[in-house]
Structure formats: C-alpha cells, structure tokens
C-alpha cells in the first residue's frame, strides 16, 4: 500500500521539477521591468521626435503636453469617464443577465438551439458601428442607446461560451449522475453550471474588452457626455492633447476592467485559475 503523503510529495516534486532551475523572483522582475522599459523608451522617442521635428501640439502632442492636459482637465476627464464607465458596466451587466439564461435555454431546448443560434450569428455579423446611428435615431441621445451597443457587442461571446461550458461535463460524470437518477435541476446545479463557470469567464473576459469599445462607438454617433464625446469634441476644436488624455483614460479603463473580471474569476473559480 502506498503512503498517501509520500504520493503527494512525489507528485509535487514532478510539478516543480520542470521550472526548479529558474529563480521565480527574477522571472517576475523581468516580466514587469522589460515592458516598462520598452514603454518608457517609446515615450522618450515620441517626446524627442515631436520637439525635434517641431510638430504642433494640435497635430501630435508630446507625452509631457498630454500630461499637462491631464492636470488641466482632470475634472472633465473624471466626469466623462464616469459616464462611459456607467454605460459600459450597465451594458455588460445586461448582457450577462440576458446571455447566461439564454444559453441555458439553448442548451436545454434543441428547438431553441436551431432557431436562436442562426439569428445570434446574423446579429453578431452585423457591424455594431452601423447599428449605433439607428439606435440613436430610435432611442435618442441618452445613455440607453450606448448601453444597447455595449450589450450587443458583449452578448454573443457570453452566450457562446456559456452554452459551450454547459455541455462540457465529462461524459463519464454525466453517466454517474444519470445512474443516480438525478433530477434536471440537480444535474444543472451540481454539474453543468459549475462546469460552465470557467468557460463563462472566458466569454466575460472577451466581452469586457469589447464593452468599452462599444460604449465609445455609441458616444461617437451622438451624445453629450462620455469619453467618446470628449475625444470627438476636443479633436474637432484642435484640443488634441485633451483627446489623447481621454484616449489614455479609455485604455486604462479597459485594462482595469479586464483585470477586475479576472480577479472575480480567481475568487469564483479558484479551481480553474490555479497555476
């Protein structure tokens, strides 16, 4: 008989064995320092090129000028950021609230699967940039048309990933559950949904990166607030440094939202994210 503690020890050894010769601290330092260095060098080149070639700020502002725009306009940047953030999160939440139940319905009903999937695919194939003006026409210039654009871009990846996840229970586990005459509800709660969770988060991570873009598309078409609006107005008034500052905020927002979803994933599906 094997001693279980020794069995776990030997498996741990093999797990570590592959990377034992690399100092993990040096790896993480490299991972952080290298991109940071590259980024700084690029900014320096940009700065130098702008001053050297005497490019006017309305055409291409230097990083330091963009920094100044941040200092001058931080109040406006913050206000408009909150608008865009609200539209993004509302649309994202709506796509989860409708996408996950729809995926469940599709998985459980072959009829729905045959009818809804082609429609979904068609909807996904329509460029959202083309839908945005129509939404503005129909609903107006408030937050709602932006939320709907966000919803439209997020919906598809969430439905597809959830549907995939719900059918990813290993066949042997399904056999075991069926052999115990489990109810459909038990099967869903105990096996299908937890199995789907990591898949759902794959969809959520794809969706959240699209979500910010969706909100900006909506704002471009017609709005009175939001970072997309700010970019549009400031560039039309040749306040290019402010447009760049808004762009930086958008990028940061997108990155922060992505990592927020990943953080929630770590909390909710620790078994799939452990490395």
């Amino acid at each position: 008989m094997t001693d279980p503690s020794s069995a776990s020890l030997s498996s741990a050894e093999t797990d570590d064995g592959a990377e034992a010769w690399v100092d993990p601290e040096r790896v993480s330092l490299k991972n952080v320092l290298l991109p940071l260095l590259t980024f700084s060098v690029l900014l320096l080149i940009w700065e130098a090129a702008v001053w050297q070639a005497r490019i006017p700020a309305w055409l291409l502002p230097a990083p330091t000028v963009i920094g100044e725009a941040f200092a001058d306009w931080w109040r406006e940047l913050l206000t408009h950021s909150l608008v865009t953030l609200y539209e993004t999160l509302a649309g994202f939440a709506l796509s989860i609230a409708l996408g996950v139940p729809l995926a469940v319905a599709v998985v459980y009903s072959p009829v729905l699967q045959k009818t809804i999937y082609p429609i979904l695919l068609a909807l996904q194939s329509v460029p959202k940039v083309a839908i945005a003006p129509l939404l503005a026409l129909w609903i107006g210039f408030g937050a709602m048309p932006k939320i709907i654009v966000v919803f439209l871009v997020c919906f598809f990846p969430i439905v597809v990933s959830t549907a995939t996840g719900l059918t990813a229970v290993p066949p042997a586990l399904m056999d075991l559950i069926r052999s115990l005459s489990a109810s459909p509800y038990q099967t869903f709660v105990k096996a299908r949904f937890p199995t789907a969770m990591p898949h759902i988060f794959v969809g959520l991570k794809i969706a959240i990166t699209f979500a910010v873009i969706g909100a900006v598309i909506g704002e471009f078409v017609g709005s009175e607030s939001g970072l997309g609006y700010l970019i549009l107005v400031s560039s039309s008034q040749s306040r290019t440094p402010l447009a760049f500052a808004a762009l930086v905020v958008l990028t940061l927002m997108s990155i922060v939202l992505y990592y927020a979803v990943e953080y929630i994933e770590r909390l909710m599906v620790p078994w799939a994210t452990k490395t």
């Binding site: 042997a172 586990l173 105990k190």
Partner: peptide
C-alpha cells in the same frame, strides 16, 4: 431504470474539481 443498488467507478476518476 438505473438502480440505487448500483455504484459505478470509471476508468477516469471524473471528480468535480470545484
């Protein structure tokens, strides 16, 4: 129909990772 008098073990453990 499946009976609760029966227990099953497969080739793969198929434990639930969560």
């Amino acid at each position: 129909k499946p009976s609760r008098e029966v227990g099953i073990v497969f080739q793969q453990p198929v434990l639930m990772p969560w």
